[in-house]
Computed example of a mutant assay.
Amino acid sequence: AYDPASEILITVGVSEALQLAMLALLEDGDEILIPEPCFVSYGPAAIFAGADVTYVPTRVENDFQVTAEDIERRITDRTKMIFLAYPSNPTGAVLRRSVLEEIAEVVVKHDLVVLSDEIYDRLIYGDAYEAGHTCLPSIPALRDRTVLLGGFSKAYAMTGWRVGYVCAPTPVYEAMYKLHQYIIMSAPTASQYGALSGLLRCEDDVEQMRLAYDARRRTIVDGMRSAGLPTFEPEGAFYCFPDITSTGLSSEEFAQRLLTEEHVAVVPGDAFGPSGAGFVRCSYATSMEGIEEAVVRITRFAERCLEGAAQNAGQAIDQTA
C-alpha cells in the first residue's frame, strides 16, 4: 500500500509521470536500460533528463519477454535505472512473477532503481489472466526501489482526459512533486472527478471491456495465423505483433503497401526498436466488425505477397540452375 499524502501523485497522463520520474532520478551520464521493442517515448524521455539509453533486445522465441540475464549482461558502473513496461506496447507480452523475481535479484545486487509503466495492467488474458498481474512493487525487495506508473486511458477508456498517477517512496515523490508544481501545477480537475467515478462505479464495465478485447484478440491472432503470418500469443494490452517476413517485404514496405492497396493501417515493428524488424503492430482497439474486415483484407494482401515471394524464389532458382 502507498500513503496517498506522501507517496502518490496525480499527473497529466502517464506521459507526465514518465518525464517527472526521469528528471527526478536521472542525471547527466547516468545509464538506463530499456527493453525493446518499446513505446517510442521512453528513450527520448531519458535523453531529455541527460541520461544515456541502452536498449535491451527481446526475441519472439521468448515471446518478447526480457529476462534477468538479458538485463544483467548490459549493466555497467553507470547503470542507475531499469525501465520495464509490461504488459507491452507494441508486442502484448506479459512477464510472469517468477521472471520479475529473478529481475528483482539483479536490481538488488546492483543497487538499481526500477521505473515500471503498468498502464495496461487490467487488460490481460488467457494464462496471464489466470496467473494474475504482478504489480512490480508488490515484490518486497522492490517496494522501495520502484517508481510505479499508471493511468486511466486504457482500462477505463479515458484516452484524452489525461489522468495518470505515480506511486513512489516519499523522497522520490517529493522530488517529483516539486517538478510537477513548476511544470504543470495539476491534472485537470474535471478529469480527476471522472477518474474517481470510474474507480467507484465502473469495475463491471472494465471487466466487460476486457472480455470484449479478449474476443477481438482471439479473432485477430487466429486471423493472422490463418493468413500465413506467424503470430505469438499476446497476453496483454490490445496489440498483436505478427511476423511478416514470409511475404518478402520489410516492415515498412508491408505497412505502406497494405495501407495503399487494402486501406488497412498497421505500424512497422521496427518503429519500436530493432527487435521489431520483420513484424508489424496491429491494434484491436476497434470494433469486432472492423477487425473481421481487416483480417479479410490482410489475408488477401498476404496471399498476393506470398505468391510473389514464391515466384521470385522460383526465378532465382532458374537463374542459378
Rank of each mutant, 00 (worst) to 15 (best):
A5D: 14
S6C: 05
I10A: 12
G13K: 08
S15G: 13
S15C: 07
L18A: 02
Q19D: 14
A21W: 00
M22I: 03
L33M: 09
L33H: 06
I34Y: 06
F39L: 09
S41A: 14
P44A: 13
P57C: 10
T58G: 06
D63C: 09
F64T: 08
F64E: 04
F64L: 08
A68P: 00
A68E: 05
D70G: 07
R73H: 12
T79I: 11
M81H: 00
A85M: 02
A85C: 12
L95A: 00
S98R: 09
I103K: 06
A104D: 03
A104F: 07
Y120I: 12
R122M: 15
I124T: 06
G126R: 10
A128D: 06
A128K: 04
I139V: 12
P140N: 07
A141D: 11
A141L: 14
A141V: 05
D144G: 03
T146E: 00
K154E: 14
Y156N: 09
A157F: 08
M158S: 07
T159N: 08
P169I: 02
T170D: 00
Y173M: 02
Q181E: 13
Q181N: 10
S191Q: 07
Y193I: 14
S197K: 14
E203C: 05
M209H: 13
A212E: 13
A212H: 05
T219C: 15
R225W: 01
P230V: 05
F232W: 10
P234E: 00
A237Y: 01
F238Q: 07
D243W: 01
S246M: 09
S250I: 10
S251N: 04
Q256T: 14
L259F: 09
T260H: 13
D270S: 07
A271M: 11
P274S: 03
G276C: 02
T286C: 13
A294E: 14
I298P: 10
A302S: 15
L306S: 00
G314Q: 15
I317F: 08
Q319T: 03
T320Q: 14
